[in-house]
Write a protein that binds this DNA or RNA. Sequence first.
DNA 1: CACACTTACGATATTCGTAAGGATT
DNA 2: AATCCTTACGAATATCGTAAGTGTG
Lengths: 308, 308
Amino acid sequence: MNLSARQIRAFLFLAEERHFTRAARRCHLTQPAFSALIQSLEELVGVRLFDRSTRRVTLTQEGEHFFLTAPRLLNDMEGLIGEMRQFADKRRGKVSIAALPSLAAGWLPGICATFSAQYPAVRISLRDALLEPCLQMVRDGAADMALAAQGLNMEGLTVDPLCEDRFYFICRHDHPLADHETVTTSDLTKERLIHLGKGSSIRQGLVSDSRIAEMPVSFEVDHLATVCGLVLAGMGVSLVPGMTLFHFRYPLLRAIPLAPGSEIRRQLLLVRREDRGLSAAAQAFHDLVMHERSSLASDGEFAIRVNP
Amino acid sequence: MNLSARQIRAFLFLAEERHFTRAARRCHLTQPAFSALIQSLEELVGVRLFDRSTRRVTLTQEGEHFFLTAPRLLNDMEGLIGEMRQFADKRRGKVSIAALPSLAAGWLPGICATFSAQYPAVRISLRDALLEPCLQMVRDGAADMALAAQGLNMEGLTVDPLCEDRFYFICRHDHPLADHETVTTSDLTKERLIHLGKGSSIRQGLVSDSRIAEMPVSFEVDHLATVCGLVLAGMGVSLVPGMTLFHFRYPLLRAIPLAPGSEIRRQLLLVRREDRGLSAAAQAFHDLVMHERSSLASDGEFAIRVNP
DNA sequence: CACACTTACGATATTCGTAAGGATT
DNA sequence: AATCCTTACGAATATCGTAAGTGTG
């Protein structure tokens, strides 16, 4: 009891043409093969669907009844296949991405623009969140993948390294260290540090360095824009990843690399669930991210991408 | 591009079971064969429908979308096949029969009752009509078959003989011939004949005999009941086929066979189009008529059948 | 190591195309 | 004679089941 699309297609061609040879041509079959196909359908449904008298082919009463629903049925089948192929061709679909705020504001929008230009019909859902929420969204399936850093528990997750993100020293132009080419961690022991909140991956990247951990903390805020404002107001200095420097492009501010030996880094990762494959659209996005990751070098010159 | 019912069925089983081995059992397939079936479906639609990680089987996003319409599609396919098989099993369908008034009133109702008892769901359309209208209904497809007699033009029609219908002489009990065992055509030359109208097959059966054609015609009516009334009123005599004798079962009337050598017959036929097969229901009716035709002997004792 | 899906492979069924058959105009 | 559907039959293809392979808990 296996009705197939080609049987219905053959039926409809024959019902239209009323001629085996012509209908067979439209099915890309020889006439005997087509004849057998019709016979198999008739055997399946248990009744003759066509009266054929060598000279004239007509629908039987039962054939007329079959004809009432067969076109809709074939249309539904072909429509479903067509829809599924739209997913395959990325003419349809959805990608859900979670990303750290730094990447979500800086590098990722340009990637999204490139992706959207290539696959305009794929909807992109982009959630900016702190590290752990990012990872949690991947774990529970709310996001197909996350652009994030190393979390406390990476079990069940697959990671691809994206880039190393070096930290920079941020101070006002009138700060004693403002004219230095580089800065060492020992230079900073007396500085008042403006920190991000504990949920931030930037904060987590910093506390791994013991000297930084000893610095006096003047503020603990949630947004880099606030850090920026506080530094401009002379309330202290900060250490931020190169990936976020676009927040600090003010004439009165300086971003100074850390000296060799004092370097602090965080590793940025592309994270996905290891037990779930990506949808066609998500896979294409994943491929694009991996392909473009070389443009993600943290060299202090990074700017928000503008779509070419 | 040939989507088949079994592919959809396999998909739905797997979506429900989330387990290849169990789903394979429900498809009456070995697990590898089932696996190949799923793969063929995925290849057809162009995307993976299931994430399988040896330990867990889940629908992909695309699979979820396929799942939205697949059940309805399979239901439609199986429903259509089911409907068609109802026709095949005569649990559904329609038979259109045209019949001469004599048969439509006499023998055929009992046949219809037998047929309906066996196939209660098949609708029967019965039209009583004179000979040529009967044949025309078969020609133009308004009737699947006709129980009729030989027409002027039988081209394109297939006939099966049903029985020979002998004519009887009808007169009142006080008629000079009323006590005769048989009657010859020479006995009738002076009788006033009550005829049926020219469209009637009974009339056509009679005019083939030259002596009858020479008889004086007193009336020309359309219904046998009128003939009956006229004979009872003493307005003349008539000649009618045995098949219609049930109209004349009155104590004051006599129906007398024609003597050997004077016999007049008409051949009753089961007529159908030669270029169109019968529907399953019509074929079953046809078979029943042919099987029961022995009960159609024109012996003057014929009565309206009562369903046993 | 037991369970579960995939791959490999030979056997069986199905489907295809060519060629011949039969019926109709 | 020409057209058109069916049947026959060998070849190509697909599908099936058994058995071995791989990966996971």
